[in-house]
Simulated assay, not measured.
Amino acid sequence: MMAKYCVFVQLWLLQSISAASSLVNVAPNGAATQSSTYTPLGDAYRAIDGNKNPDFFNGSCSHTLLGGVSHWWSLLLPAVYRIERISITNRNELPERINNVQILIGNSLENNGNNNPSCTVISSIPSGATRTFQCGGMIGRLVNLYLNSTDPNVALTVCELEVYGELAAPAPSFSAVVMGRNVAVVERKLCWSDALLYCRDFYWDLLSIRSGQEQTEVQAVLTTVSSNLTKQVWLGLRRYLMAGTWFWMSGTSMSFYYLDTQSPWQETSPCGGIDTSAPFHWREIPCGDHLHFICLKDIQNKTQRVEFFSSTKPKSP
């Protein structure tokens, strides 16, 4: 019995190692920003360009301004990932500038993402070397490097950062682009609040529709998706209970309306969705109905999302 158990453990370890080694670097698919830029030669995106050249003057390393209170470099991934490991290549000159940098992973945009949980603190990386840090499957869409220092001679510079992980959410049933925005149609039946939290956990928010052109493109998406969709799908459409005014949970201005004013639930439910067949009206729907839904994948930095908390789920850190 013991021999069989040992064989089982060995096989499990081999499978685990194989799965870990098959992970792909997803960093190049993200968007990089940083607290400041020393020179265009040190733009944030240079740390995810696939080039590990450790010589800053060869144009493949990021670099913030010298001095200041804190320095940060941030990577926004295209979706939420379960991150197993992060590899960082240090520059060959002044390698000590990477010392004491924190690696942070999470979904919060608060403080430019620098309040997210820590994977580790970098003690040091040798000159021009690459070092890998295990993050144990931490879940997040933001990967930040954060250095809190008032030293006038210190800056944050990275020659390459690689992120190895897998999507934390199941692949959406259908992905599309609507007026330049990436959306995901999720064929999972949830009530309105759970659909909202699902989108906020794994993408950005339930979809908002800003114009007649976007309405037309959303209709085309719904027509293209399989016929298995529910009769309506949830949008990020919500109504103030007292005032009766509709708004978008994403913070987008309500400048375009396509509401069906003949809805049998008119003024009784604060949740809204869209028909999945012509004439594709928006309508009030009981919030507890379990429907498919459409998520907006792209973070909208120019809008302030409406906060929403569930009694069954704690507020995100």
Rank of each mutant, 00 (worst) to 15 (best):
N111M: 09
N111F: 15
N111E: 06
N112A: 15
N112G: 04
N112S: 11
N112P: 00
G113N: 03
N114I: 11
N114S: 02
N114R: 08
N115V: 13
N115S: 08
N115M: 11
N116R: 04
N116M: 10
P117S: 08
S118R: 06
S118L: 02
C119V: 07
C119P: 10
C119R: 03
T120M: 04
T120Y: 03
T120P: 02
T120V: 04
V121Q: 07
V121T: 06
V121W: 02
V121N: 04
I122T: 00
I122W: 05
I122D: 02
I122H: 06
S123F: 13
S123C: 09
S124M: 10
I125D: 06
I125Q: 09
I125M: 12
I125L: 09
P126L: 09
P126H: 02
P126Y: 03
S127L: 07
S127K: 01
S127V: 08
S127E: 00
G128T: 07
G128H: 05
G128S: 11
A129K: 12
A129P: 13
A129D: 14
T130A: 10
R131C: 13
R131H: 14
R131T: 15
T132H: 07
T132D: 10
F133N: 03
F133T: 00
F133W: 08
Q134T: 15
Q134I: 15
Q134H: 14
C135D: 02
C135F: 05
C135E: 02
C135V: 07
C135R: 05
G136L: 09
G136K: 01
G137E: 05
G137V: 03
G137A: 01
M138N: 02
M138L: 08
M138D: 04
M138K: 03
M138Q: 01
M138S: 05
I139D: 03
I139P: 00
I139W: 06
R141E: 08
R141L: 15
R141Q: 12
R141S: 11
L142R: 03
L142C: 09
L142M: 12
L142E: 06
L142P: 00
V143E: 02
V143P: 02
V143I: 10
V143W: 03
N144C: 10
N144D: 13
N144S: 05
N144Y: 10
L145F: 13
L145R: 00
L145K: 06
Y146K: 07
Y146F: 15
Y146H: 13
L147T: 08
N148A: 12
S149C: 11
D151R: 05
D151V: 07
D151I: 09
D151P: 00
P152E: 13
P152Y: 15
P152L: 15
N153E: 08
N153L: 13
N153P: 00
V154H: 01
V154I: 09
L156F: 12
L156Q: 06
L156T: 09
T157V: 12
T157K: 04
T157I: 12
T157M: 11
